[in-house]
Simulated scan of single mutants.
Amino acid sequence: MAYRMWELYELPSLRRTATDIWAVKTTTSLERPRYIIIGFQNIENSDDISKDVTKFTHANINNIRLYLNSEVYPYERWNLDFDKKLDSAAYYAYENFQRSYYDKDMGEPMMNIEEFRKNPLFLIDCRHQPDALKSSNVDIKLEFETRRTQFPDNTRVYALILHDAYLTYSALDGSIQTRAP
Rank of each mutant, 00 (worst) to 15 (best):
A171F: 11
D153T: 04
Y73W: 07
I140W: 01
Y94A: 03
D52K: 03
A90D: 01
Q41C: 07
L66Y: 08
F116V: 07
S170M: 03
E10T: 12
T149F: 10
L80M: 14
A132S: 14
S88M: 06
E108T: 15
I64K: 05
E143S: 07
K118G: 03
Q129Y: 02
K141V: 05
F40P: 09
Y102T: 06
Y166T: 15
V157T: 14
N112W: 12
T178G: 11
N42H: 07
V24S: 02
T26Y: 04
Y75M: 05
E10M: 12
K85G: 05
K25H: 09
A89M: 13
V72P: 01
R179G: 14
P33L: 04
A159V: 12
D83A: 08
D139R: 12
W6S: 13
E31I: 04
T146Q: 07
K134V: 01
I161A: 11
L86G: 02
D48G: 02
Q177N: 13
E115S: 15
W78Q: 13
P74V: 04
T54F: 12
E76A: 10
L11G: 04
G107P: 13
I49G: 02
N112S: 12
N60T: 01
I49V: 15
R65N: 10
A171H: 08
F56D: 03
K25R: 12
K141T: 04
E114F: 10
D20S: 01
V72M: 00
I43H: 02
L14R: 00
Q129M: 10
R4T: 11
L68V: 06
F144C: 03
V138A: 01
P33I: 08
S88E: 07
M111N: 13
Y73K: 03
E95G: 01
N69L: 03
S50E: 13
E115V: 02
F56H: 13
T19E: 08
A93W: 08
E71K: 04
A132K: 14
S136I: 07
M1L: 12
E114M: 11
D47C: 14
Q177E: 12
F144M: 05
D81E: 09
S175V: 10
Y94S: 00
T146I: 05
A93C: 07
I161K: 08
D139N: 14
G174I: 04
A23F: 10
Y9N: 06
E31G: 07
P130E: 08
E143N: 04
L86K: 11
T155K: 09
N79E: 10
P33H: 08
M110E: 15
P12N: 08
A18C: 09
A159F: 08
Y3F: 15
F144Y: 06
R34M: 12
T146V: 07
T28M: 02
L167I: 14
K118A: 14
G39R: 14
E108V: 15
R147E: 01
A59S: 15
S46T: 15
F144K: 03
N112E: 06
D103R: 14
D131W: 00
D83M: 05
I38E: 09
E76Y: 06
N60E: 11
Y3D: 12
N154S: 11
I161P: 08
A18D: 11
P74K: 00
A18T: 06
